[in-house]
Amino acid sequence: MRVAGVIRYTVLLLTLLGTWLMLQTYFQRSWRTISLRSWLGATKKPSSEKLPRYKCGNQKSCPQNYFAFKIISGAANVVGPSICFEDLVLMSNVKNNIGRGLNIALVNGTTGQLLKTDAFDMYSGDITKLQTFLQGIKRGTLVLVASYDDPATKMNDKVRAYFTELGSSDVATLGFRDNWVFLGAKGLMNKSPFEKHIKNDKETNKYDGWPELLEMEGCAPRKMD
Rank of each mutant, 00 (worst) to 15 (best):
I137G: 14
N179Q: 14
L134N: 01
L142K: 04
M122W: 01
A172V: 09
G57K: 03
I34T: 13
C56N: 02
N103P: 15
L36W: 02
Y162R: 01
A76G: 03
P81I: 07
L115C: 06
L13M: 10
A42C: 02
D170N: 10
G41H: 08
G18D: 08
V143L: 12
W180E: 09
G5N: 09
A172N: 05
E86N: 14
S61A: 15
Q28I: 08
Q64K: 12
S147D: 02
S73H: 14
V3Y: 10
K191D: 13
L14H: 00
T111A: 03
G80W: 05
R2E: 10
L166R: 01
I198R: 13
I127C: 04
F163D: 02
E86S: 14
L142M: 07
G136P: 01
G109C: 11
L90P: 11
K199R: 15
V171T: 04
C219W: 06
Y54K: 02
K45G: 12
T25R: 15
R177G: 03
F176W: 07
L115Q: 15
D225I: 04
F182M: 12
L51A: 14
I98Y: 14
G167A: 05
Q113C: 05
T128Y: 08
Y9P: 00
A119K: 01
H197G: 14
G109L: 13
G187H: 08
R100F: 04
A146Q: 08
V181C: 08
L16T: 11
V11P: 01
N156C: 08
E212P: 07
G101H: 02
E212G: 15
A105Y: 07
T132K: 06
D157V: 11
D150H: 10
L188D: 06
T204Q: 11
R160M: 10
T153E: 11
P52A: 05
